[in-house]
Design a protein around this nucleic acid. Structure first.
Lengths: 231, 231
DNA sequence: GCATCCCCGATCACAAACGATCATGAAAAG
DNA sequence: CTTTTCATGATCGTTTGTGATCGGGGATGC
């Protein structure tokens, strides 16, 4: 069996089962543990899966019409509900910032009917989806953060600081004791820049964030005008 | 047996079986391993298949994960072939501009293996696809041009003018009497900015461009270092 | 905190496939 | 008819993928 073929099979198997151990893959593909591990290492370097002790899980699953990176995320229905609520805060003529989290992607379908709306985002997926609905949108530019889909860096921040927006919709990895935190310094800086340039701050928070704390502090919860959750 | 006929047979066999070893192809087509290998190398350069040690697999992973906007375009196989050829002009350590045409999207699968490559583009689809392959990439930012997927405007041009690249890969709507032209002023300006900031210019031109002229002139054909077409 | 299990990465050796090169022969050009 | 061109096949040194072995170290249970 060819190496490439086996690697494609691994991805296929991970698509149906959501995780597989090295042993399971060995018996399924008639290969030795060493070979499977080498394949997993290579596929991980390519960003297709994430390894964990004993096996691996898919980072991106296959068919759907959501972008790969959004498809992989959890709690999609909860995020959709939160975004539907959040979109009601937008008024005609507004200029809004949208950050590069997987949550805020679900704002897009609600923005079509808002007249004279302008969106600025550092998430290329949002830009593309908005262009398909003829919503006026800007992209911050910057360096693409590998492993997520977010534009960051000094150029991206400079772009943001040249703009003032009515509102900023954002999410983050953790909310603990009134502190909103994230795991990447570069993304933290972008969120802070956007927050400083916007009148109203809306923090979109699903239940998976609660009780988690990450190294990079974005803001205290009382800085935001409203936290929007599922309730 | 003719060379071209045999290569078509290889593709046909790969269509029914999902992968074939060199040995299998040898017995099936009554040719020596050397010949089969040469054919496979050629078909891979044209983007029709991917080789693996011992054999080859069809490049089926791509068509269904193409972005909507790219999936819709014509002459995909021709564009793939052009891009496979174009990618050979890139050297390790290069910094390259890629424009926002549908043609240049097909450069992406060929960029994975080039070490120390940096890409700057105003096409968010390219950014996202490159991030998934762990290729370092930057986005120019700017306003999203509705109806296509291209970032344009003064902010986008400003970003480009702050960078110098080794090469610029671009396409356009028309080529007529040695003049390369396009239908949008905003995109024209971006292409001109990138061209001015790059050493080598490569114009990717499929046969549908020939004989068409559009209002916005990008450059004379003799400005470009090489025109890359299907031949 | 300790012991057990077994999973991982590194290394090695072997077999198979690969690329480079050259020789052959047939078809095309002069 | 001679020369050139080009696809093909053979040879050979090198590279690659694979499975086995072994020491180190996370995961789990007590």
């Amino acid at each position: 069996m060819l190496q490439l073929e086996r690697q494609q099979d691994i991805l296929r198997l991970l698509g149906t089962h959501k995780s597989m151990t090295v042993k399971e893959l060995c018996t399924a593909l008639f290969a030795s543990p060493a070979t499977i591990r080498r394949d997993l290492a290579e596929l991980e370097r390519a960003g297709h899966l994430r390894r964990s002790f004993g096996g691996a899980v898919l980072t991106e699953s296959y068919p759907d019409q959501l972008p790969l990176t959004v498809r992989a995320c959890d709690r999609i229905t909860e995020k959709k509900r939160i975004c539907a609520k959040a979109a009601q805060r937008i008024r005609p003529g507004d200029t809004v910032f949208i950050d590069a989290s997987s949550t805020t992607y679900f704002l897009v379908p609600h923005l079509r009917e808002i007249p004279e709306l302008t969106v600025i985002t550092n998430n290329p997926n949002v830009n593309i989806a908005l262009a398909q609905q003829n919503v006026r949108s800007f992209c911050t530019g910057g360096e693409m953060l590998n492993g997520s889909v977010a534009l960051v860096g000094s150029e991206a921040e400079r772009f943001v600081r040249g703009i003032h927006a009515h509102a900023f919709f954002f999410s983050a990895r953790g909310l603990c004791e009134g502190k909103i935190s994230d795991s990447s310094a570069a993304e933290r800086n972008m969120k802070i820049a956007m927050a400083e340039q916007a009148n109203r701050l809306y923090f979109l928070c699903d239940t998976s964030k609660h009780g988690h704390i990450f190294p990079y502090l974005i803001a205290d919860l009382d800085r935001v005008d409203e936290m929007i959750d599922e309730t």
